[in-house]
């Protein structure tokens, strides 16, 4: 199936979960990433039981803390 991950179209196996995608996309600090699927938040405790479907759009939003010191 084709899904859009962080703005790029990618090919993944059908039935992949958010948890698996986080792993395969080498998400940094996966415990603290915010995930949206089709503009809706997926809570981290639902990563393992949320299946991504063909045509879905997935975004990873990361903490970025710097700027001052």
């Amino acid at each position: 199936m084709k899904i859009t991950v962080a703005g790029k179209i990618k090919e993944y196996d059908d039935g992949i979960t958010v948890a698996k995608l986080v792993e395969l996309e080498n998400v940094e600090t996966p415990e603290y990433v915010t995930v949206t699927v089709n503009d809706e938040f997926v809570e981290s405790h639902d990563f393992a039981n949320t299946t991504i479907k063909d045509g879905d759009t997935v975004e990873f939003l990361y903490f970025m803390g710097g700027g001052q010191a």
Binding site: F63, G65, A69
Partner: peptide, 11 residues
């Protein structure tokens, strides 16, 4: 907020 030191800062 993430736990302290869980996510790196610029420093």
């Amino acid at each position: 907020p993430p736990p302290k030191d869980a996510v790196p800062t610029c420093k």
